[in-house]
Write a protein that binds this DNA or RNA. Sequence first.
DNA 1: TTCTAATCGAGACGGTACGTCCCGTCTTGCC
DNA 2: GGCAAGACGGGACGTACCGTCTCGATTAGAA
Lengths: 208, 208, 208, 208
Amino acid sequence: MLGSMTEQQQKGRPATGGAVLRRRVTEAITEAAFAELAEAGYARMSMEAVARRAGVGKAALYRRWPSKQAMITELIRNKVTGTLPHTPATGDLHTDLRELLATFRSQLANPLLARIGAALLAEASHDDALAEGIHTGVTAPRRAAARAILQAAIDRGELPAGLDLDLGTDLLIAPLAFRMMVTQDSSDDDYLETLTNAIEAALKAATR
Amino acid sequence: MLGSMTEQQQKGRPATGGAVLRRRVTEAITEAAFAELAEAGYARMSMEAVARRAGVGKAALYRRWPSKQAMITELIRNKVTGTLPHTPATGDLHTDLRELLATFRSQLANPLLARIGAALLAEASHDDALAEGIHTGVTAPRRAAARAILQAAIDRGELPAGLDLDLGTDLLIAPLAFRMMVTQDSSDDDYLETLTNAIEAALKAATR
Amino acid sequence: MLGSMTEQQQKGRPATGGAVLRRRVTEAITEAAFAELAEAGYARMSMEAVARRAGVGKAALYRRWPSKQAMITELIRNKVTGTLPHTPATGDLHTDLRELLATFRSQLANPLLARIGAALLAEASHDDALAEGIHTGVTAPRRAAARAILQAAIDRGELPAGLDLDLGTDLLIAPLAFRMMVTQDSSDDDYLETLTNAIEAALKAATR
Amino acid sequence: MLGSMTEQQQKGRPATGGAVLRRRVTEAITEAAFAELAEAGYARMSMEAVARRAGVGKAALYRRWPSKQAMITELIRNKVTGTLPHTPATGDLHTDLRELLATFRSQLANPLLARIGAALLAEASHDDALAEGIHTGVTAPRRAAARAILQAAIDRGELPAGLDLDLGTDLLIAPLAFRMMVTQDSSDDDYLETLTNAIEAALKAATR
DNA sequence: TTCTAATCGAGACGGTACGTCCCGTCTTGCC
DNA sequence: GGCAAGACGGGACGTACCGTCTCGATTAGAA
């Protein structure tokens, strides 16, 4: 969809004889790339440094991805997409919210993500494929999880039928995401509990 | 504070010769820089392109700022800092909230900011001076405005004394900021009104 | 001597498995190599292009020769060595000279040789093995043939006993070789006849 | 004609302000290039090594020449063209020949030329501009000098009117050039004297 | 008004990284 | 074991920018 080689493809057996991208090399590159990314940031990171750190030729990188941007893009997308939130369904709105927020918190806590997230978004505004990738792989499933909880609560009568689902989703996701990615503040269990309460109240008032 | 030469300084030392940075040049550079920034993004933008577009020698840029980063940093900081939110104080929480949110909306609507914001945040995580600049020039005054409104409402008894001001500020700012910067969704007056209601409800529940 | 595997060796050890370099492959490589050499020249020619053109894996090349240089070296050496000049001995100096020059002309007329010769010499000045190979396989036998004719003529009294054999050989070989390899001019039968006369006269005067 | 910047051009003053290729840099590059060329040969020499040795950025090279080939090509052409042979005219064929041969010998003795000459010729067969450059700058003037001597001798009656000037020129130049460039043999004064005698005799017989 | 020194446009400079191509080696699965 | 295919580490290619420096020409405050 975005990048090029995924691990499955690396096993694909070509017609005759053949040469296949080696998983060990891919792994070494991936690891090195994340390390460089975390140390230097997207803009300052260099493919040559990644290759050097991975003990690999530059060509090995370019055999896998057509450019620095494509590489970083795909690596991050994979990393984030990998950890999809499961949708809690305890039958109790408060508990569901708490659980979902806790899941988000743990995913956002990934220190790499914090450092990289902004760079990704920045790139996305100049790269439609990346924007689409982020939407499909990251944003959409999380918003879907949030919507599911809200809809279930509406169906149970815990939330008003007139709730604006879109706004409700914003309310649910934004404060925590903003706090962790922009403000870089911590969010302990107390914070989460209070936030859950506040969001719950907000949702009940968010009718159009 | 961050960069180097501000327009005031340009008048600073008349000394002997005609040795003052010329305002017209500074303006041409500024304009060109924003144009390039919007077209290419921070990472892809080049000082040479800015100079070319401004019809100016590269040295003219480096006479004003010590580096690409410093230049962009200062330009943006000026642009954003220029539009400080005024703190509404109508004596009515709902009206104050609405007004503040409307101010934020108009500031965030700047299309440049939307494209640049993320890149700035990305850089900030590897550049403490930039981070500090953003905090002082952008984040802090806006959070202060939000806090002021909340504190006034508490003082009036409209909000509970136990309100967590920090969380309250997050609730106030995050949903709109997130929607406009990350989701890039629109936010019409209806959205804003519903949001105001929801936040108001949330604030009343956000006690620790 | 220079390279590695010669066709004789290819029959040498049938051993166990199908573990003998296959002649067809060797031939395909050889043909492709000459073609690439003629098209691109030594410096611009690539082993990968040769392999591709021969429909062969790169390893097939490196199983036969240790390096690009060794391969080209041996191929050319074989091609040129293959066509040793026979030493004419008609008992008449003029006829012997004419015949030898005609032989040289036909060998130098090989269009490949013309294109490759210079590149080979260029390499030779930085590669003693190649220089030695060219000397032994190409230069020496031709100079020997020339010397034999001259010595026979001296013995018959057709040339003065004081003839400087080394210089005589230069006189015999150089003008034709120079004309065909450097100047790239043609040399028809008339030219050859006049040249023979001139060289004959020169030889009679070339005593020290 | 071949390359790009000559020293004269380096002084040319462009319209406004301006930046001009600096002679010192050009000289450093030239010197380094010859050194590398002599050490490694054309094929093995690298632009990066030249830049490093000259204490210069790679871009400084590519600002002057569009490619490695173009650089070497022009440098050599300049070096060889610089040393044109003067045409001796003593009124005596033997003396004229001796003198011209001595001039050639001293020019061919340039050890760099010996190492580079073959590489140049090799390149020339794949680069018409280079071939033309060599012809115009190197070959033609030398052949012209030879022809002038021969023609004068014909006019004086020292050589037969029917002399084939083309062949005569070959006879004059080839043996020495071949000996020094291909055979890499030495040629002392005795050799030169004997060669002169032989060529003189040959010339008298070289009529068609 | 004249002098004069810093700014100006242009672009060369030493560097670093880009993405490409080729070298000679190694790996994979087929024959 | 040879074979076709092609990935591997390495290194050079030629390009694009970075931030600095050099060049005359311009310009505006001080005399």
